[in-house]
Design a protein around this nucleic acid. Structure first.
Length: 293
DNA sequence: CATTCGTGGCA
DNA sequence: TTGCCAAGAAT
């Protein structure tokens, strides 16, 4: 069997699997707008899908268009983001909404270059919105797709720590030529990685391509490559920033200095609070630190 | 190219 | 119990 025929056989099996096993996520509905798709993609960056469904629905109900969000205050945006994590994403979405009002007639741009220019929109999100919202079949490469292709096509457990040119070429090679099929493959490959071909404890018994997967055929050999550095969280700046912002979200008035003292060394707390101000997540007035209301 | 940037659930 | 990791982007 040629490599092209191998790919096509995998496509067929995964697409058939997706048709019956794919999740009914709200941004996949026919009435979902490009704006809804964009919001879902930004929320999903490094945050589990299960945790964003509720917030996504609330967000779209409150701000159904880029113009609606552009009119909100940064504080409302940060509060609505709640605890999805990496709150700079919320500010990025807010700035992106303003940019769409200013430069794109209040619409999510369909031109990939215009999408890519929006704050918080990188290579992945550009491709995802292009494919899922506009039917423009750019190759979508996220952590799921990387893992799926690494296992099925290369027979290895994990992809390299960072996306390589070879991986991009592989994913492009694996993208079906026919546009509709390419778009369907993009979402189906991601879904397979999310539900079956998971990082830990993959459910190979339930995999539609278990009989074709080169990793399974090789006996599921363990990852043999550069050691990945764990994220680490306890005691980090990230943790403390999160605590500062959590206090600000819960407060209805500027945070008094003594409130912040309990979080750690005053110098460090002040440094991080100032950093949060520089990023637009807080403002510093005589009364103390507060959300940018 | 390596780091930084939240939060929470689960093996 | 705790380390791992989840639809990345920016620097």
């Amino acid at each position: 069997m040629s490599e092209a025929a191998f790919r096509e056989a995998v496509h067929d099996a995964v697409l058939r699997w997706y048709a019956v096993a794919g999740r009914d996520l709200p941004w996949r509905h026919r009435d979902a707008t490009p704006w809804g798709v964009l919001v879902s993609e930004v929320m999903a960056q490094q945050t589990p899908i299960a945790r964003i469904i509720g917030p996504w629905q609330a967000w779209l109900a409150r701000w159904p268009t880029p113009a609606a969000l552009a009119s909100a205050s940064p504080a409302d945006v940060i509060l609505a983001w709640d605890r999805l994590g990496y709150p700079r994403r919320a500010l990025g979405l807010h700035r992106a909404a303003k940019a769409m009002v200013e430069g794109h007639d209040g619409q999510v741009p369909s031109d990939p270059a215009d999408l890519r220019a929006l704050p918080g929109v990188g290579e992945y999100t550009t491709a995802a919105v292009s494919s899922f919202a506009f039917g423009n079949p750019l190759v979508v490469i996220d952590t799921n797709v990387r893992r799926v292709l690494t296992r099925i096509a290369l027979g290895r457990e994990q992809a390299a720590p960072s996306l390589t040119a070879a991986e991009r070429a592989l994913a492009q090679e694996w993208l079906p030529a026919e546009p509709d099929r390419a778009n369907a493959w993009n979402v189906a490959a991601m879904e397979l990685g999310a539900l079956i071909c998971t990082a830990r404890a993959p459910r190979c018994e339930d995999c539609p391509v278990r009989d074709r997967c080169r990793w399974v055929a090789a006996g599921r050999p363990a990852y043999d490559g550069p050691v990945r550095k764990g994220q680490g969280y306890e005691g980090t700046d990230r943790q403390l920033r999160g605590r500062i912002l959590a206090l600000a979200r819960a407060a209805t008035a500027p945070l008094a200095p003594e409130v912040l003292e309990g979080l750690g060394e005053p110098e460090r707390v002040a440094r991080l609070a100032e950093q949060l101000c520089a990023e637009g997540l807080l403002v510093h007035s005589r009364a103390g630190y507060d959300l940018p209301r």
